[in-house]
Write a protein that binds this DNA or RNA. Structure first.
Lengths: 324, 324
DNA sequence: CTGTTAGCGCTTTCAA
DNA sequence: TTGAAAGCGCTAACAG
């Protein structure tokens, strides 16, 4: 491997000067810079990150802790976070928490031991208290999609309850009265909030839910819940708290020879992964996780970053029928 | 941050000794080891990876280049590769190639510039030639699911053609004669091989395909191809070259009021992500990508690793009906 | 079994 | 605007 020293020798300058041009320091004579750059190109020099990290005590490495790697949601998250990190000249280390507090804690610990400059945390199991402790240790991190009391300035949040209510309102405005809600695990607060938003909108409209069923946030759950539901009742609208649930429900609905939206209307919570790509395309409330992730990275690297707020947005597609 | 030196001072030994116990060197007196370990625990010492990398010229970092982050396949790949890497005490840097040769090349370059000790490449667009050149540069890498002429010892491969033929044979053995094949993009060789395997089995059995349709490897494509198909013909069996395609096809089939497997049987190529989890569970040929990925990491770290071969396996589930 | 001693390749004062 | 020099925290011979 060619080193700074090699470049310095080849360009006839000191190592310090090469370091300056590599790091874009302005105090270098134009001609010197040109010479050095030529030497770099000729030798194919690329700085050794370890040496750089050791000397500067900055690893230029960010960490991301997620709940799991499975599901479309993760791909989108990972994609955005990494693109943004690279844009800012940082590398990214990713680790999954696998839904237990202990694993999340150790993942975070490991990433800090690896000397990450900062972490984006998309975690569920770990307690607020642990997060608070971490903050006191002066660790740099941002919490994605979770509100931690006392750490508001480090949280990038979204109003799931409002978003959910808005989505439900679409059904109500279209004249539906027999509406069911399929939601995720009660162990997740964002899941509870979505369910609550649904209930808000219903009671506001003076409506009683046809049913409210919960399970995992995956396709089989959607399929099963919807199947079980349709054995007993025949609602005109189903609201699904994520995309996987919605696709599972679609399968169950169509399997029974019912059509969407002619017989049953559908709306889901989405992160832009698949709702738009199935047929019929599903009308949804957009959960701007990618925008939020991008903002999280910016915030991590720039302390003066002003807080941004993310508003729910309804995306009208083809899965809602208007009832006269 | 506490350093080796701090630990050495606290334990009353030299830095070399601490380094020895940290690295599991055997030549340390039991009592000394205990003292040092106590000091490490007390001080909460964790080695600085940059210093370690600089001194040893080993980064303990592996790289993974994938085509994309989207789709269930990637999550599974990433999950296995990372778990295995961690098991071996390595971290993992992941980058996506995004399906262009140029991006794949630069991703690989970047990872090597970052001083990764080795790379797992799951790439499509880059040419064999480029890979060959890389090998001559003495870069350490393993190519996943692709056969490169002259680089056989660095490739972890799977016989897609055979696997696909085996899957098709299941239909044939069950008495089906009107079989269609839904395959992926013709730009991918593994996609072509799967298609070819289907044709092999059909012609072996003296059967003519009811249809052979190709498109993207995703759910919308599966939905569209199957819909279009069912407008015109009514086969008794559909073979899908991946899981997404199969789920899209299921949607189209059930939407028409047809049942699986009563009216139409289904088999798909799978990587263990979803075929087992939809209803009915889809009979499939298992593509052991996780096993292959795990092996790739081992091979990367152990040159004497003997080659392993991965055999296709049929997993019988509930989507195939026997025709008398 | 343990300590001493050079570096690894870079950044960063401090002078010049 | 440039160079000299002192580390950053660790590993790896080499002695002892």
């Amino acid at each position: 491997m060619v080193t700074l020293e090699d470049v310095a020798a080849s360009a006839g300058v000191s190592r310090a000067t090469v370091s300056r041009v590599v790091n874009g320091d302005t105090k270098v004579k134009a001609q010197t810079r040109i010479n050095v750059e030529a030497a770099i190109a000729e030798l194919g020099y690329s700085p050794n990150p370890a040496a750089r990290a050791l000397a500067s005590s900055q690893s230029h490495t960010l960490g991301l802790v997620t709940t799991s790697y499975r599901g479309g949601f993760f791909g989108a998250l990972m994609d955005t976070v990494q693109s943004e990190a690279e844009l800012q000249g940082q590398q990214l280390l990713v680790t999954q928490g696998r839904d237990t507090a202990e694993k999340e804690r150790s993942a975070i610990q490991r990433l800090f031991n690896l000397r990450c400059d900062g972490l984006v945390l998309h975690v569920r199991a770990i307690t607020d208290e642990t997060l608070l402790q971490l903050a006191e240790l002066d660790r740099k991190f941002i919490v994605l999609d979770r509100e931690v009391q006392g750490l508001e300035d480090r949280c990038v949040v979204f109003d799931h309850r409002l978003a959910s209510a808005l989505a439900t309102q679409v059904f109500i405005d279209a004249g539906h009265t027999s509406i069911v809600c399929l939601h995720g695990p009660s162990s997740r607060s964002s899941s509870l909030l979505r369910r609550q938003g649904f209930l808000d909108a219903m009671s506001n409209a003076g409506l009683v839910p046809a049913a409210v069923l919960g399970g995992e946030y995956d396709m089989p759950a959607g399929y099963q819940l919807a199947s079980q539901l349709l054995e007993n009742i025949r609602p005109t609208a189903i609201y699904c708290c994520n995309e996987e649930l919605a696709i599972g429900a679609m399968l169950a609905v169509t399997e029974r020879g019912l059509r969407i939206p002619q017989d049953i209307s559908l709306i889901c919570y989405d992160s832009g992964e698949r709702a738009a790509f199935v047929r019929p395309a599903i009308t949804s409330v957009h959960f701007p996780i990618t925008e939020m992730a991008r903002f999280a990275i910016r915030k991590l690297l720039d302390n003066h970053c002003k807080n941004e707020s993310f508003l729910p947005e309804i995306i009208h597609r083809d899965s809602v029928r208007r009832i006269c």
